[in-house]
Nucleic acid binder design. Sequence first.
DNA 1: GACTTGGAGGTACC
DNA 2: ACTGGTACCTCCAAGTC
Length: 787
Amino acid sequence: MKFTFIPINFESFELNNQTYIQVYGRNEKGKRLCILKQFNDWCYIIKDIEKAKKKLDTIKIQEESKNFLGKPVKALKVYTSSSKQTKEIAEKFEVYENDINIITKFLIENKLTPLTLWEIEGELASNNECSNLEVDFVIKAEKITQSQSDIQFHPKFLAYDIETNEFEIGKGEILMISLVGNNFKKVLTWKKQSKKSFVEYFKDEAEMLEAFVKYIKEYSPDFLVGYFSDGFDLPYLRARAEHNKVKLSLGLDNSAPIFSRGRVLSGKIKGITHVDLFRFIQVAYSQYLQSETLSLNEVANELIGEKKNDISHIDMNKTEHTQKHWEDFFEYNLQDSVLTYKLFEKVWPDILEFSRVLQEPPYDVSRDSMSQNVENYILHNLHKFNEIAKHKASHEEISNRIEREKYEGAFVFQPKPGLYNDIAMFDFSSMYASVIVSYNLSLSTLSKEKTNIISEINNKKVYFSKKPGFFPELLKQIIEKRREFKKEYNKNPNPILKARSNAFKLIANAAYGYQGFFGARYYCLEAAASTAYFARENIKSAIKKFEQSNFQPIYSDTDSIAVSLDNKSKKQALDLLKQINEHLPGIMELELEDFYKRGIWVTKRTGEFGAKKKYALITEDNKLKIRGFETVRRDWCNLAREVQSKILKLILTDGNEKKALEYIKETIKKIKERKIELSELVIRTQLKKSIDEYKANTPHIAIARKMIAKNIPINLGMLIQYYIAESDNKKALVRDRAKMIDESGKYDINYYLNNQILPAVENIFEVFNVDINQLIEGKKQMKLGEF
DNA sequence: GACTTGGAGGTACC
DNA sequence: ACTGGTACCTCCAAGTC
């Protein structure tokens, strides 16, 4: 019989020394299928293959002509019936590709891509063979092939969120659980009855947990989606289920979630893809988000324009709540799932396309790091080059790589402080990726012989062969595909094409970091260092060309160049750009980023030189682009950030400092008169490691300690909030004056003037030879008075 | 005791 | 441990005069 379906979820298991792959998915009619396929694992041997041939006892061995790191090798492909058998062979021989995930291998071997249509030949399993699986059909597959046709796929997904009375897993109880799907909204609780139709009341926590399982089974989602659910919701549910002796049988075989330990926990449910949206957003989105934290509230606000409900009026520590409080709490809990649901809808095209482009299951794609994504892309495409995959690095190799010296990175131009008019900004498109491709930089092309691709690392020459290596070739294809899909998207804008082009772009951008990453299979320090080297050479030579044509360079960082147009036309600049491009090597390309009406560069706070990585620009239609300034730094108080951004805007709009000066005078007055709201003065600093690992005793550590003393939960990665208050002790350090935001106190006028406002604006006014210090009757004068 | 210096720490740029 | 290097800036503590 023949079947077609969309594969979503993958499992492997071993039975009687045979590996089986289980693929869960849906057919066009929405029926849920489980495909069962026997799978023979494999590994390669390339050393002493004749000897190995004699000693090996396995199901199938074949001799193959392969490549390893670009060089031809005779290899034995050794098929085994199970991963266990592969492991036994790996103990006796030096083998390759035994360290690739079994599901990845299954997909590679059969040239299959998740979340695309598959064609299956096989038989329906009888009832007693699959009575424990909650799917419509189980199919024992003989043959699986990738279908040539494409169908629209809309998965069923369900968002969930829990509320507890203790943050620490296992300590408290789950008060309520919300579930949101398509036309489906529920809050389950055992705490309080409610008149709200979506709230369902149970007599205790155990019954609520049972109902949670029941509702998920009834809804039958392909994806169960949470936000921070790998680290919180799912483990908490497991802990409470255990405590209440309830079986959390969420899996389609009624198994409980399984947690795998990596850097962080990952929660896996058999047959259903559990997605922790936080993790995907962290990897694929955070770089492009404005949000200062990746909290559900901020991310949802930025991506879908909706916020969490505000329940700050409820005192969580109070044991008795009014009915109104509970009702608000239910709404709040529901809203979190609503946001998660909508966020998944928004992000789904990206997960889908990541999965298709990387050819990895959505469960993995939603959790893998960018370096893992690059590596998966390589592994799935190595067959195009007939390559055997290199080993993962051993612990020893990794520690050696970590200890190695750093190499020289990007070139940053030393700007001359000042206000500039009429600026053209150029940048190299995907610079590092295009350097890798154009100069053929990779592990397999690193050459011991002298060639004419020569870079320099610490005064030592390094050579790369001219014969295209698989890594640069793959990257070239990635860049080409990116361009192709971007073009297609511009012709026919839709979220899928956008996501596809974006997926290729992200992989291309991570390729350079991958070769310099100590955990990479294809780690190559020389390639990474040479990429930076050739990038420096090219940007410096481009800067020189602008200079020679009388375009004064203002600034440059890594892959961008800002020049002053002076009296020259935009056309002249674009003509020069064209000329520069004609002489660039390979696929390298310099593009116009934009023209700007004005821009400002300032000095460093110490020294008279221009500060790098700090500038502000304004476009012809008055849009600001602010880089590096305190305005964009979350560890400065809002007041300083807002004042600075306002001042930059006034100066860049008008071209002079007059209005800005008025504005700063007003602000200083307000601070002195204590007219500033405390919320504007709060400083937020992240706790980057556990509290006792800190050597330095900084304000945010002092506050974190204070919080611990007051039993306020602290966790890694959280933002510690505080303000600086006045103190009687004139010599008190900043950390001694730091107070939690709900601690009573008067804000320290001098601190906010001298340590927040002044540093944020001083250098900007310095460009106009205005000394802002004179406006502030600062510490110095006060101290003179004391003597 | 005032001032300088360097490390720790955090966050941004690309 | 889960891409890379470059850069700015604050706060604190130790050292210098």
